[in-house]
Every structure is written in structure tokens, then in C-alpha cells.
Design a protein around this nucleic acid. Structure first.
Length: 588
RNA sequence: GGGGGUGUAGUUCAGCUGGUUAGAACGCUGCCCUGUCAAGGCAGAGGCCGCGGGUUCAAGUCCCGUCACUCCCGCCA
């Protein structure tokens, strides 16, 4: 490095540097060797700049530059020149400048990389993960990681400005069998016992409210040993937030201000506030999802009453068994072929739907192999309710409510994609509120929390909590952006008796509740303040804002779908002594 | 645990109803080239067609198994 300590970053050079001598360090992004002149795009964290080697200016530097290959690390000393008008490269920010080199040093050569460090070709993820250090050199990946940093910095600043205190909570925790599968860590000092990695700091942040910290936040790593998805990794990051002496409205307002600040500071986008709120009930019945993608309309219509007198046996049977019939009007769906409809049918079958009925709208009339089972009166009512126009395609799903919502919701997304209804530039936010407190688990014959067991029921429904728990709504809220749940939270139970009652409905008797959550129950008895909070999935926030389709692209070192790190090789076997110390035996 | 997709040169891909020497582009190597910017021109090297079995006169292609990556269902309070 001697004599080549950098004075500037490549991408930061501007017109104001013209005429100056600069020292740059970086990677050789591309070489254009004209035999005489050699042009090299030199890349560092800030971007690229063209550096020029002219044999007439310095034959020694030019000679060395002839040996440079992609990804060599070099240092150059040269003069910043303004390019003449006809030589400006409008594709890069520094395209009006170049550096004429008069001294150069090879700092480190490189093997030929296994793939190009450019965005032009998508490389197979297997190779990208194996050479993640090279993958992360790609400008898009660097931008993702950089924006992730900016977003979390903005969040920290915002929360700090609003009186939130960053407090760390334990990574080594007690395992609780509820919820996701725990990652376990064996205890050497207490052989045969295990810690669990946190699924979220939920209980600790509530305890911190009892301790009087008033406003807490943590950008916390969380762990869940479940199967992976494009938006799910075994370890992920939550922006974990909790506030005391607070109402739902205050939290929502605070959080939408935080989101608006992120968009303003990191993306220079102003979003209108307040963010629209939608009940869980509306989200499910209209969009078939608790995280509706509102970038396009295409609502689901319940046509059960319109078709109740038809003679179509499939519909009649469903109505008799208390199911419902929903329809989607695929606007201008005439471009969908029979094969497309067949594909959609098998698509929704994975959500449990048994079939997909369809009708085309032509000359203000319905056409299909089943219209004969629908009287003219019913057909008119359908066309009226679904606001049909010629060229529309009506798609019907009949089944039990849950199945219909889930299939129709996913069908809606699929159609939005097939009919190109999604505006990729749009940011469609909504709060989804008033989730039910419980669902009923038919198999286990007990109630389950929809959110978690510490969520408070609507206080004006306390009188029916014990008798009609399924009717009770909770003080919950999820923030949804473009069909992705960015985060969710609730007002918590701060009253010992209500918490005990909820545990009871969940099938935990007093002894079990005491064993699992005794410390929380106990804390509630010592003056717990009313409190509530929320947690955002930072990975998902960054993914959606960066317009990525996988959180792997916003995590520096992610794992594959089988939970493997292809770079380091984790997980791996361990040696016999390690196991002996832990008193652990591995079955072959 | 289940369903779908992919696996061919360093990379991204093509390779038809099985057929003789498996192609292209980029990258790589060498030569030419003083204004390119994904530089250009010429020449060249580079393949256990993921792996293992099977069918066949003949398999990249068909069948069975297996592995890896990926999307989804289950799972994720």
C-alpha cells in the first residue's frame, strides 16, 4: 500500500475534482485493452470510475496494466480529467470523468472468478452462496446491504428521538413448546438440560415494561426451527418494539410515522398518512388473505345467496353443508385459455379447493358448460353483482369458508400476475386490525391464540370471553405492504385475572401456566402498566422496499432451503469430545 | 412428510418423436488494435450432459433410484 493510500472513493469523484491528483484503490471491474490505450473500470464501495493508461504518459504503468484481469485489486495515482462531450458515458454517475494514470500498483491479483461480477446474468444461487464474498461484490447486492444498514439506522434514530431505549435480551432462553420449534443449545454445566434460542423477545419486552423502562426497542435476532421459504430463514431479524401507557391508536400513529420516515430518508418517497385500516374480516372476505395485496383490486364476491336456487349440484351440496360460494371477475379474462383455467384449477387444489367453475361473458350473456343450471334470473343477478362486461371471465369456488377464502385469495394473486394487474412501482400499505382472539383446533379440541397468548381481548367483549371465545376480537394490528406482512403486534394483557382466563381457554391449567409462564404471571401482579407493542420483520421490510423476491437477497450470509450455509458448511458434525462433554449421543 | 421446477463447457442457456463429431453467447488463453465503456477483430483451449442403476443395436434424450438448488403445501403461537 506504500504510496498508494487512497485519497478518494471511485464513485465519489465529481467535476469539482477535475485537475486534482487522486489516489484510488479498488477492484478491476472490466478491462478494455486497445493495444495502445487501456481503459479499466475501477470499482469500490462507492461505484466505478474509468481509469486510463496511456503508454505515452507512462510506459511502465501501461505495461503493468496489460497484465490486469477481472477482480485484481490495484492502486492508482493519476489526474482527474473531464471527458470531452462526445466521450461521456451517461450510464454511470462518474461518466463525465476519468483518471489518467501515471503510477499504478498491483495490490493483489485474483483467480478468474467463477461468475461475472455484474447484473447482466443471474447466477445459480448454489454458486452464489458458495462464493458469497464474490456475490456480495455485485452492485445490486451491495446496494441491498447498504440500504438495509440505512433503514436500520433510520429506525434507530427515529426510535431514539421518541424516547425508546435499546435493551438486549437473552439469546440463551428457556424452551417453551408452544409456537415454532425451538433451536436447542445443550448446557454443559447442567448436563441433560437445554437452552432454547429466542423465537422473539416477546416476554422479556413485556417484563421490561413492568420494570418501568416505558419504551423499549431492539433490533433482535430471532430463531425458528421450521422449514424455509423465500421469505423465511431459520434466523431472522425483528425490529422489536414495546410501549407503556399507550393505546392502539398511539402505537399505530407512531409506527406509521416511523415507516414514513424510512421511506422519506432512505428512498425520498413521501407516503400519505394515516395508513388505511381494514378489519381482518374485510381482508378475508374481500381478498381472501390477512395480508392483502392492494396494488390491484380484483375483489372476491360472496355469491352464495345469488346462486342459492340454482340447480348446479356442486353448489347445492356446498350450500347444504353450510359452505359458501365465491366468485372473482377476471376482467378481460377472455385471453385465458381452457388450459389456463385447467392450470388455475390445479393451482387452487393445493389450497384444498376441489374445483373451479367458470363462465365467460359474451354479448351481455354468460357462457359455459354449466350455465344451463342457472336460471336467467340468477344469471342476471350474478352479472349485476360482479359488474360484468363483455370479455370478462367469472371464476367460482365453492367449499367451506376457510378453503374458499384461501383458494380464492391465492387465485386472486395468481390472476393479478397473469393479467399483469400489478403496478410494481406502487406502495400499497394497509393495517389489518381486529383479528379474532382465538381459533378452534378441531384435532386438539381446544382454542388456539391467533396472535399469541398475551394479546388482550377487546375489553368490551370481556363478558363473553368465557362463553363465546370465538366471537371475541383482539387488539391486534398487522402492517401489510404489497401483500407482505411487514410486522404485527398487539395491546397486551396487563391484568393477572384476564391472563389466567386466556391461559385456561388455551387449555393450560394453573400448574402448567405456572410452569411455563410463571415469571410473567407473577410480574403482572406487581403493578404491570398497560402496554403494547409490535415487531417488524426487518428482512421483509428491506426485501419489499428493495423490490427483491427473496429475503436471501437482503441477508449477507443466508442459508439454503435445507438450512445449510454453502460457504461455511454449517451445520456440521462435531467431534466426540465435544459430545462427551455435553453428555450427548448421536443415533446413526 | 408431500407436490412442482431445474441440473449439459468457467457462467447463462439451446439440444425435436432416442441416431453417429453435443452447440451458442459471454468468460478464459494467444495475437492485432490509441477513445473504449458489457470495446472490437482473428485464432484457440475448454464437456464423467449432477450421481448410480436399467431398457435398447444405440441414451444428454426413455424408465427407476438418489443427491443438490429452488417454488409451493404441511409447519411457521
Amino acid at each position: 500500500m506504500k504510496g498508494f493510500i487512497r485519497s478518494h472513493l471511485c464513485g465519489n469523484l465529481t467535476k469539482s475534482n477535475v485537475g486534482q491528483q487522486v489516489t484510488l484503490n479498488g477492484w478491476v471491474h472490466s478491462v478494455r485493452d486497445h493495444g495502445g490505450l487501456i481503459f479499466i473500470d475501477l470499482r469500490d464501495i462507492s461505484g466505478t470510475i474509468q481509469v486510463v493508461f496511456n503508454p505515452e504518459k507512462d510506459p511502465k504503468a501501461h505495461k503493468l496494466a496489460e497484465t490486469f484481469r477481472q477482480e485484481y485489486v490495484i492502486g492508482v495515482i493519476g489526474d482527474v480529467l473531464a471527458r470531452t462531450e462526445d466521450m461521456v458515458n451517461p450510464k454511470i454517475p462518474t461518466g463525465a470523468l476519468e483518471v489518467l494514470v501515471h503510477q499504478v500498483k498491483l495490490l493483489n491479483p485474483s483467480l478468474t472468478p467463477p461468475f461475472l461480477i455484474s447484473e447482466e446474468v443471474n447466477t445459480n444461487e448454489e454458486l452464489r452462496f458458495k462464493y458469497r464474498y464474490l456475490d456480495l461484490r455485485k452492485p445490486q447486492m451491495q446496494n441491498n446491504i447498504l440500504m438495509r444498514h440505512k433503514i436500520s439506522k433510520t429506525i434507530r434514530n427515529f426510535l431514539d428521538n421518541n424516547g425508546f431505549i435499546d435493551i438486549e435480551t437473552p439469546i440463551l432462553n428457556k424452551s417453551t413448546p408452544e409456537g415454532a420449534r425451538d433451536f436447542l443449545v445443550p448446557s454443559r454445566i447442567n448436563q441433560g438440560k437445554f437452552y432454547a434460542l429466542p423465537q422473539s423477545p416477546q416476554i422479556f419486552k413485556q417484563i421490561l415494561m413492568v420494570s418501568g423502562f416505558d419504551r423499549y426497542y431492539q433490533i433482535a435476532r430471532c430463531f425458528r426451527d421450521e422449514d424455509l421459504r423465500a421469505d423465511r430463514q431459520p434466523e431472522f431479524t425483528q425490529v422489536d418494539i414495546e410501549m407503556s401507557f399507550i393505546t392502539k391508536n398511539e402505537i399505530l400513529t407512531m409506527m406509521e410515522n416511523m415507516i414514513a420516515t424510512i421511506l422519506k430518508d432512505c428512498y425520498q418517497i413521501e407516503i400519505p398518512l394515516p395508513i388505511n385500516r381494514m378489519s381482518y374480516d374485510e381482508a378475508m372476505s374481500k381478498y381472501g388473505s390477512d395480508r392483502p395485496d392492494l396494488r390491484f383490486d380484483l375483489p372476491i364476491y360472496d355469491v352464495t345467496s345469488a346462486v342459492k336456487d340454482c340447480s348446479f349440484q356442486v353448489f347445492k351440496n356446498v350450500i347444504e353443508s353450510n359452505g359458501i360460494i365465491c366468485a372473482i371477475n377476471a376482467k378481460s379474462g377472455e385471453k385465458l385459455s381452457r388450459k389456463d383455467i385447467d392450470d388455475l384449477t390445479s393451482f387452487i387444489s393445493q389450497y384444498g379447493a376441489k374445483g373451479l367453475a367458470w363462465m365467460r361473458v359474451k354479448n351481455k350473456k354468460l357462457e359455459s358448460n354449466i350455465v344451463k343450471f342457472f336460471s336467467e334470473d340468477i344469471q342476471n343477478r350474478l352479472m349485476d353483482q360482479l359488474k360484468t362486461e363483455d370479455g370478462d371471465l367469472l371464476l367460482f369456488i365453492a367449499d367451506q369458508k376457510q378453503v374458499v377464502y384461501e383458494s380464492a385469495g391465492n387465485l386472486r394473486l395468481k390472476l393479478g400476475d397473469m393479467l399483469s394487474l400489478v403496478d410494481r412501482e406502487k406502495l400499497a400499505f394497509t393495517w389489518v386490525v381486529d383479528f379474532p382472539l382465538f381459533t378452534y383446533d378441531e384435532q386438539a379440541k381446544r382454542y388456539d391464540s391467533v396472535n399469541h397468548p398475551f394479546t388482550t381481548p377487546h375489553l368490551d367483549q370481556l363478558d363473553i370471553l368465557s362463553e363465546e371465545p370465538l366471537q371475541v376480537l383482539s387488539e391486534t394490528y398487522d402492517l401489510v405492504l404489497n401483500g407482505t406482512e411487514l410486522g404485527g403486534g398487539s395491546i397486551r394483557i396487563h391484568n393477572y385475572d384476564i391472563q389466567k382466563e386466556v391461559f385456561k381457554l388455551l387449555g393450560l391449567d394453573e400448574a402448567q401456566a405456572e410452569e411455563k409462564f410463571g415469571f410473567l404471571l407473577s410480574a403482572l401482579k406487581y403493578g404491570a402498566p398497560p402496554h403494547g407493542g409490535i415487531a417488524f420483520g426487518l428482512d421483509r421490510v428491506v426485501m419489499v422496499l428493495q423490490k427483491m423476491t427473496s429475503i436471501r437477497d437482503v441477508i449477507a450470509f443466508p442459508k439454503t432451503q435445507r438450512g445449510v450455509c454453502l460457504m461455511s458448511g454449517a451445520p456440521s458434525t462435531v467431534n466426540e469430545e465435544q459430545l462427551l462433554e455435553l453428555a450427548i449421543q448421536v443415533d446413526e
